[in-house]
Nucleic acid binder design. Structure first.
Lengths: 108, 108
DNA sequence: CTCCGGTGCTACAATTATCGTAGCGCATAC
DNA sequence: GTATGCGCTACGATAATTGTAGCACCGGAG
């Protein structure tokens, strides 16, 4: 089941529940998803720059996540090259900004 | 193989970068982490109720996540049984609430 | 033209994480 | 006792992630 992700559509768990929050939570709960959005927060990055920013994560999973995120409409590949946030993706990132302050307060 | 997380401290990637946001992003970016916090948002749940709420996720990973989340100080196990959010965890959940509205707007 | 460096992206095997099922020890009931 | 529910763990099977290498493509020197 579901080799999804690559370019097919949504192997996003929870999609079937009809509750979009579940699908979103699942998509964002995959490794590097949050990190990618975070790294793209202020400026577009090329795939390699993103890889560097993400602590040398393997290109395999980066491409996979990028595809998923692109399909979800959060990220896009500019014609000049380089991945950037769509307006929707930027909104999502705004939603996450309070997390930064929270993390600082957390510092386990 | 790093069984960590159980009770040792932090197999959280990114902790070493010194940027707490990275550690948080990594912890939250593990499967079911976000979902668990979400399901616990209004009331404590027993481990089995949580399992049911999480679409029958396997107890193995649930216990692992619960341990990590507990160690991070977001979740606690009440003496009467049942997992609930700590004040800190509730704060984190508040941070995530806008996500709900976002998800509704998203509906891919 | 050829060569070089950069882009996005893919193949492959090895390693990890997760799943699914079963079950433990403990406490509280009946 | 037997039964039920709790938090939690073991185990093999399956899926996801990692790490390394490399592809095809493009633009700018040389």
């Amino acid at each position: 089941m579901a080799k999804q992700a690559s370019s097919r559509s949504s192997g996003v768990r929870g999609s079937r529940t009809g509750r979009p929050i579940m699908a979103l939570l699942d998509l964002l709960g995959r490794r590097w998803s949050l990190r990618i959005l975070w790294e793209l927060r202020d400026a577009p990055l090329t795939s390699r720059a993103l890889r560097t920013a993400c602590d040398e994560a393997s290109p395999t999973v980066l491409q996979t996540r990028l595809s998923e995120l692109r399909e979800a409409g959060f990220v896009e590949l500019g014609e000049a090259g380089g991945y950037g946030l769509t307006p929707l993706g930027r909104d999502l990132c705004e939603t996450f900004m309070p997390l930064h302050r929270f993390a600082e307060r957390w510092r386990k």
